[in-house]
Write a protein that binds this DNA or RNA. Structure first.
Lengths: 349, 349
DNA sequence: CTGTTAGCGCTTTCAC
DNA sequence: GTGAAAGCGCTAACAG
């Protein structure tokens, strides 16, 4: 147990250590920075004082003096409770943490306004960079941050109206593949369930769905398309409505795991056989006793990639400013259970 | 779009604004702090310069000058990918965020060493306080941080060897209730599955399990007790071994949701009827088609409570130092599906 | 109403 | 080897 500080609440400073050791502040710094131009004896004495006072260097003051950033990376997501984002956070933190940077989280709860405030705050805190999953349409605050010299990396959704590195999932390609799988099973009445049009991924996935059906000569029944649900409860309700239509769809493509789970609950409740294809894998998907195919991708990797892009910007400003980079992560189809063709009984187990 | 900064990479400072506006730095500060002793005309001029230069105050310098902390709260957890911890993080961030504090996350990946480094780093960054879910036994680094005047709040696991506010779940009580429910169904061969003894919650839950069985006159078959699994795969394997015993248990109490899910998978795979009771609720638990009872609790609330304890320390150091406070959150039993008595066929659906 | 001085804790530069 | 001075960006405290 170290000696208690002189006055509680007041923490020892470099000068306190210097006084205690009978040297100058400069010498203490040198010892702490492993500068070799200091005698062994002095070093010992200083180290002893450091221990005696329980001194801890003040990183804040240090980085202020040094001019460079705070050693913090801001991470702005819409909902950390969603495993997708917490894994992304882990990925980012893992990569930047290996370079001595810490991650500051900001949760926007889907609010663009919160996002703007958060980003402003992070900039004011002099974060070295920001990884953001933009919440909505207006991204002027991001453009501003970027313009002010804070590197911004967009994850999962692209920058709009300004240039920034970004890492995306192959939303369109994944949606095409998922929809094709349903078509291949013979389904023609294929519904869509996903978040509102303000969400970029949703737009792309819906586009993939539409194009695929069109290419197969299937006309999309607009009553089958529900853009809106953002959580399981909303998705369950919307799916329930689709299933209650006079001629309900025989298959549903769900644009993210919230919607897939909601749809699953509705299908189970209705006791009806409806084929499900979803975007995003999720835990226990294989245990649901209903055939289900999902387009899976690695959200840790999404975060790691975002972290790498950011690090590249931080490390290599010397290399000039190469154009913004884009990374697209592939998706992979996973089939749970044996899928079946459309029919009155349907493929339910 | 604001004018570009003079030199890229160099950001405008208070003095730049002052020069631009033809006033002193002090006046700019006053405008920015809404000090009323500034003429409207001057205010306008300053504001215009701020906008023209795209000036953003440097919070780091500010907090250094003001002496108070960085406005950051450190959050140290073992695994952010676990929804339990991400919700806890949300709870903490929600509460402290409402008071203008930001949350810095640290993920220890169960390593006490990482935890020690992280805490040291956070202290050096002058965080205002730390919320930590201690990874293991040795907590001297936490004691040290606390001794150095950084308020520490322990979540989910209590401080050991030093005094600190903490918020716990009623691990023992919840385990008792869960075990009693299995006993009430007539089960006598009740197994246990949980993390290693280094995890405090696990110890408490195991104790509850043992005491309840003992109180009912049931001797615990030590072959039925598996302390070890920390993830689903490990739990599934361990549960599989229990089920493969000559006289397998007819019921399992699982000490957290990783173990519950692993056990569920093993039971499903074995096609055997084994009653399951678990700690922690989880998504889709009601959809598994197997009777299951869980002790549920609110991990957001755990985080919020931790945040509140911390805020109280930060706000009220004037009130002297009241003894460390402890908050214990209750658990609530939830029954999914219809439970059944032990039997050769068992309660499987 | 506005400006000057001093200094938060640290470190670079230049002396000794 | 060691120290003194100056300053990172900002703001109390005291002038004027």
């Amino acid at each position: 147990m170290p000696e208690t500080a002189n006055s509680p609440g007041t923490r020892p400073t470099l000068r306190d250590v210097a006084r205690h050791a009978g040297v100058s502040a400069m010498t203490v710094t040198r010892v702490l920075r492993d500068d070799d131009r200091v005698s062994a004896a002095t070093r010992e004495r200083v180290l002893a004082s450091v221990a005696a006072l329980g001194y801890r260097p003040n990183t804040v003051a240090r980085s202020l003096r040094l001019g460079h950033g705070s050693g913090l990376v801001g991470l702005v997501v819409t909902n950390l409770a969603n495993p997708f984002y917490s894994r992304l956070a882990l990925g980012v933190d893992g990569v930047v943490g290996a370079h001595g940077l810490k991650t500051v989280i900001g949760n926007t709860r889907q609010s663009v306004e919160n996002e703007r405030d958060l980003v402003a705050d992070l900039v004011a805190r002099r974060v070295d960079g920001i990884v953001v999953v933009p919440a909505g349409g207006d991204q002027r605050h991001l453009a501003q941050a970027a313009a002010q010299g804070v590197p911004v990396v967009c994850a999962s959704r692209p920058p709009m109206g300004f240039a920034a590195d970004h890492v995306l999932v192959d939303d369109h390609g994944g949606a095409v593949e998922a929809t094709e799988r349903l078509l291949a099973l013979g389904h023609r009445a294929v519904g869509y369930l996903g978040p509102p049009a303000s969400v970029h991924t949703s737009v792309e996935r819906l586009r993939g769905y539409r194009e695929t059906l069109a290419a197969a000569g299937v006309t999309v029944d607009e009553r089958y398309v529900r853009q809106g649900p953002v959580d399981v409860a909303g998705a369950e309700e919307a799916a329930g409505e689709l299933l209650a239509l006079p001629e309900p769809p025989t298959a549903l493509f769900c644009s993210n795991n919230r919607n897939t789970i909601g749809a699953f609950r509705a299908v189970r409740r209705a006791g009806r056989g409806v084929a499900l294809a979803g975007f995003d894998d999720f835990e226990l998907a294989d245990m649901l006793g209903l055939p289900l195919s999902v387009q899976s991708y690695d959200s840790d990797e999404l975060g790691r990639e975002a972290g790498r892009l950011l690090l590249d910007r931080l490390r290599g400003p010397a290399t000039g400013a190469p154009g913004p980079r884009r990374v697209v992560l592939p998706t992979r189809a996973i089939q749970y259970g044996e899928p079946g063709p459309p029919g009155p009984a349907g493929p339910a187990g």
